[in-house]
Amino acid sequence: MEKGINVTLKVWRQKNETSAGSFETYKVQANPDMSFLEMFDVLNEQLITEGKDPVAFDHDCREGICGMCSMVINGRPHGPKGGITTCQLHMRSFKDGDIIVVEPFRANSFGVIKDLSVDRTAFDRIIAAGGFVSVNTGNAVDANNILIPKEIADKAFEAATCIGCGACVSACKNASAMLFVGAKVTQLALLPQGKAERQSRVVAMVNQMDAEGFGACTNTGACAAECPKEIPLSVIATMNREYLAAKLNGK
């Protein structure tokens, strides 16, 4: 390899949800143009060839949109660079000789499946509780019948870009899911199509969020700082306003 760098990895290994885990140390030679996950591919090839168990980690699209990859790198969800997912992090962000600590997204509501893979189905259940517009297929009117000002559409889109990765939960000292829930509440509360159910929606989603065991928000802002899609903290304020209005309305 022409321009390789050598790094030392300290990786969280845990056989399954119930067993205890610990850090293992590995040395890998990487090319700076490799992605962080490609570096893990190299490590796993090495481990398999040596007859050892490869590191399990979630990943799929490897272009920052599916939300599947989920590593805490040197204490930060998705690593040291802002605005990207783990799969978009490249080894050029590290130096020769670096020690890199890699852990799963930790939260009580995200059980470890194996090594760096966690269970994020709580997010699905929150959406199932209310993160939708109740419109059956075939019920729609012509798309241009309801005009939506560009600023509103853009704001709704900004909130809708959440990829549901869970970095916000992982970053939060309370393991709060409010950035995730706030993003969906905000998107649908802004749009005329979502207004009919806005009050029942926010109450149902918040109730489910609490039932899943996510913590409360203490306004630290770590969630928004670590969000790979840069969802703004203001969605939490919107969610709180929506919730309060719904409660005042007896929902």
Binding site: F132, V133, V135, A153
Partner: peptide, 17 residues
Amino acid sequence: DQCVAQGVPFAREYGGT
């Protein structure tokens, strides 16, 4: 039509279309 009804935030013009 269906996607807009679900709240899919497609790009829009200033007039809202």
